[in-house]
């Protein structure tokens, strides 16, 4: 058993050596660079980074599966807005218990994801188009529901999920660890996980082996929706309000985390372990740029270049292997 674990860890390091190296370099740089060395390596800042990346990694968990399947899910950013607003509304407008509001928020994400899944598995309409449509629908519904202005929640307990702590660790970080474990288990230990790789790698082979490709697609898109719903609720809790503008462009950050993490857009290959590193790189980078007081307009430029660089290094590595 230990040899197997050792082997897996070895393989993990080997597969991700490039991005792990990049993350380490980034962290070392931020710890010694005069402008950031004081603030970066503090306990508080570390938790802050993790809290900030949790939403992105929730999305990235679903997105990894979707991309391995050979598809894409553009609707997740809008789901964040819709589920966050409705969950906040449940507490602020209808006085529902907080637990119920959280569940409703997640269910809304699940419903949108399921809708994606049904259309994608029953038709040959490309996932890009289907989720582009639901992205607009969800975003629109969030604006309709809120009338365009944030839904504020004054109930103190509402902040627990996004801004609270459990035993000194931020709640979203604990949730994130939990979600990552579930996702990793699905991908690596279950038949569904194998079938996701199979459908993405060679749909015909999967079909000939008796796998229901429609069922796999439906489940994966539903899962992606659930993850987005969760991210929406957590974000609404952290911001004390449901905002229709929340999650704008979040799908792109999630895709970036997945792709930087080494998952191929062509489908069939990729690991959730890589996505974690990808998400960390983007999160640490954002944090570092903030600590350096880099103008937020320039932050986009730097982020874009780093994404391209990370993928380019991966490309070179693969090219050498072939």
């Amino acid at each position: 058993m230990t040899t197997r674990l050792q082997k897996n860890i070895k393989q993990y390091l080997k597969d991700n050596i490039g991005i792990i190296g990049a993350l380490l370099i980034l962290c070392i740089f931020l710890s010694i660079f005069p402008k950031t060395s004081g603030a970066f390596l503090t306990h508080k800042n570390m938790f802050n980074v993790l809290r900030q990346i949790s939403s992105n990694l929730f999305l990235a968990c679903g997105m990894t599966m979707v991309i391995i399947l050979g598809g894409i899910d553009l609707s997740v950013g809008s789901i964040i807005a819709l589920s966050g607003c409705v969950a906040a509304g449940c507490v602020a407008r209808y006085n529902l218990p907080i637990f119920a509001a959280i569940i409703i928020g997640i269910l809304i994400g699940m419903a949108v994801g399921m809708m994606n899944g049904v259309v994608i598995s029953k038709t040959t309409i490309p996932p890009f188009i289907v989720t582009l449509a639901t992205m607009n629908v969800a975003k629109g519904l969030a604006y309709v529901y809120t009338g365009g202005s944030p839904v504020r929640v004054v109930t103190k307990a509402w902040q627990f999920l996004g801004a609270g702590y459990i035993g000194g660790v931020p709640t979203p970080v604990i949730l994130l660890v939990f979600v990552l474990i579930i996702t990793a288990v699905i991908m690596n230990k279950t038949k569904l996980g194998r079938h996701i790789y199979a459908v993405g790698g060679n749909a015909q082979a999967a079909k000939f082996s008796g796998i229901s490709t429609a069922r796999v697609k439906l489940l994966v898109h539903t899962y992606s929706g659930i993850m987005a719903g969760l991210a929406g609720v957590v974000l609404a809790s952290r911001m004390y309000s449901g905002q229709p503008t929340a999650g704008d462009g979040a799908e792109m950050d999630a895709i970036a985390a997945v792709v930087v993490g080494g998952t191929s857009m062509a489908g069939g290959s990729g690991k959730i372990g890589g996505t974690i590193i990808g998400g960390l790189i983007i999160g640490v980078l954002n944090n570092g740029l903030n600590l350096m007081n880099v103008n937020s307009f320039w932050q986009y430029v730097v982020k874009g270049i780093v994404i391209l660089l990370a993928v380019f290094i991966d490309y070179l590595r693969n090219k050498k292997k072939d």
Binding site: R194, A198, G201, N202
Partner: peptide, 13 residues
């Protein structure tokens, strides 16, 4: 399925 192992392919499904 090219990205999967021989064992995974043999027992696919």
């Amino acid at each position: 399925v090219p990205h999967m192992t021989v064992a995974e392919n043999i027992f696919l499904g």
